[in-house]
Amino acid sequence: MESAQDRKPCGASRTIMTQLVFPQDTNHHGTMFGGKLMEYIDKTAAIAGMRHARKPVVTASSDSMDFLKPIRLGEVIQLEAFVTRTFRSSMEIYVKVDSEQPYTGERQTTVTAFLTGVALGEDGRPAPVPEVYPETEEERRLHESAEERHAQRQERRRRRSGK
Score class of each variant (00 low, 15 high):
residue 31 T to S: 09
residue 70 P to C: 04
residue 28 H to P: 00
residue 58 V to N: 05
residue 61 S to P: 00
residue 58 V to S: 05
residue 74 G to L: 02
residue 63 D to M: 09
residue 60 A to T: 08
residue 96 K to R: 15
residue 77 I to C: 04
residue 34 G to W: 04
residue 73 L to M: 01
residue 69 K to I: 03
residue 47 I to P: 05
residue 79 L to E: 00
residue 30 G to W: 14
residue 48 A to F: 01
residue 24 Q to Y: 14
residue 47 I to T: 08
residue 92 E to Y: 01
residue 89 S to H: 07
residue 93 I to V: 15
residue 36 K to H: 14
residue 60 A to W: 14
residue 44 T to S: 00
residue 83 V to I: 00
residue 22 F to V: 12
residue 36 K to G: 13
residue 45 A to K: 04
residue 86 T to F: 12
residue 23 P to T: 00
residue 50 M to N: 07
residue 80 E to S: 14
residue 57 V to D: 03
residue 91 M to Y: 05
residue 35 G to L: 13
residue 84 T to E: 05
residue 94 Y to N: 00
residue 52 H to E: 11
residue 62 S to L: 15
residue 91 M to G: 03
residue 45 A to N: 11
residue 28 H to D: 06
residue 56 P to T: 07
residue 74 G to I: 02
residue 53 A to T: 06
residue 82 F to N: 08
residue 42 D to M: 08
residue 38 M to Y: 03
residue 30 G to K: 11
residue 67 F to Q: 01
residue 82 F to D: 00
residue 97 V to R: 02
residue 46 A to L: 10
residue 95 V to I: 14
residue 36 K to Y: 14
residue 43 K to T: 12
residue 48 A to V: 01
residue 37 L to N: 10
residue 63 D to Q: 11
residue 40 Y to I: 00
residue 24 Q to S: 12
residue 46 A to E: 08
residue 46 A to C: 06
residue 49 G to T: 02
residue 28 H to M: 09
residue 32 M to Q: 12
residue 32 M to H: 10
residue 67 F to T: 02
residue 33 F to K: 03
residue 54 R to E: 12
residue 71 I to P: 14
residue 41 I to E: 02
residue 24 Q to F: 14
residue 35 G to E: 06
residue 27 N to C: 10
residue 94 Y to T: 00
residue 45 A to C: 09
residue 72 R to L: 14
residue 92 E to W: 00
residue 33 F to I: 08
residue 71 I to Q: 05
residue 74 G to V: 01
residue 92 E to P: 01
residue 52 H to M: 06
residue 61 S to Y: 09
residue 55 K to V: 06
residue 81 A to S: 00
residue 23 P to I: 02
residue 39 E to Q: 13
residue 62 S to Q: 13
residue 56 P to E: 10
residue 64 S to R: 00
residue 42 D to I: 08
residue 78 Q to K: 15
residue 53 A to L: 07
residue 83 V to T: 01
residue 49 G to R: 05
residue 26 T to V: 14
residue 68 L to Y: 10
residue 43 K to Y: 11
residue 61 S to D: 03
residue 38 M to N: 06
residue 78 Q to R: 15
residue 34 G to Y: 08
residue 89 S to E: 06
residue 23 P to L: 01
residue 93 I to C: 01
residue 49 G to F: 06
residue 27 N to E: 02
residue 29 H to W: 15
residue 23 P to N: 08
residue 59 T to K: 02
residue 71 I to K: 11
residue 37 L to Y: 13
residue 97 V to W: 07
residue 42 D to R: 05
residue 92 E to V: 07
residue 49 G to N: 03
residue 61 S to A: 12
residue 72 R to H: 15
residue 86 T to M: 05
residue 69 K to S: 12
residue 70 P to R: 03
residue 60 A to G: 12
residue 65 M to C: 15
residue 42 D to W: 04
residue 58 V to G: 04
residue 96 K to P: 07
residue 56 P to R: 10
residue 81 A to P: 11
residue 71 I to W: 09
residue 23 P to H: 08
residue 85 R to D: 13
residue 49 G to E: 04
residue 65 M to P: 00
residue 22 F to Q: 13
residue 43 K to H: 15
residue 38 M to V: 08
residue 64 S to K: 09
residue 65 M to F: 11
residue 83 V to M: 01
residue 42 D to E: 10
residue 30 G to D: 08
residue 21 V to I: 10
